[in-house]
């Protein structure tokens, strides 16, 4: 459109503030991947149906492909890059590796962030709680049994 103007927006991602000069029609997903180079967040379907673009916004999982970057200002955003500390992986990440809950890895960032939000809210989830929590995240290769197991292990 003629006249669509770039805006300076401020995003708080993984406890750091970023200033980005961007268009209002950029999704949070696009800005994370293309401006901040945080490519751990994946683009699968781009229409809300797969969960690979999941990030945490104020601790809750959301679809970054359906959120405008301008709308994400003033919120705390956590991406998969924000989970490890220095070179130490987060316990959920370690459990995904140990349980073989990763094959191609495309769904993994979304699965792990969804799991983190669940465990922060409910440290002792039942297997059904876990299944409901990850019901919006599609995995096309590992299957869900090992993913559920990895999350279960992380709740101990």
């Amino acid at each position: 459109m003629k006249g669509m103007k770039k805006e300076l927006i401020t995003l708080r991602v993984n406890n750091e503030d970023y200033e980005i000069f961007t268009y209002p029609n950029k999704t949070l997903l696009e800005v994370l991947r293309e401006d901040l180079m945080l490519t751990g967040t994946k683009e699968g379907c781009s229409e809300g149906a797969c969960g690979t673009c999941t990030v945490l916004m104020d601790g809750k999982p959301i679809r970054s492909c359906l959120m405008l970057a301008v709308e994400a200002q003033g919120k705390d955003i956590t991406t998969i890059e924000g989970l490890s500390e220095d070179d130490e992986l987060h316990p959920i990440q370690k459990n995904f590796i140990e349980q073989g809950a990763i094959q191609c890895g495309f769904c993994t960032p979304g699965m792990i962030l969804t799991a983190k939000a669940l465990l922060d809210e409910n440290p002792r989830p039942t297997e059904d709680d876990i299944k409901v929590a990850i019901s919006g995240n599609v995995c096309r290769c590992t299957g869900y049994a090992k993913i559920v197991k990895a999350i279960k292990e992380s709740s101990k």
Binding site: M1, G3, M4, K5, P24, N25, K26, S46, L68, V70
Partner: peptide, 11 residues
């Protein structure tokens, strides 16, 4: 998939 252009308002 990209979004088409628009102007953004935030009351």
């Amino acid at each position: 998939m990209r979004l088409p252009s628009f102007n953004y308002l935030e009351p």
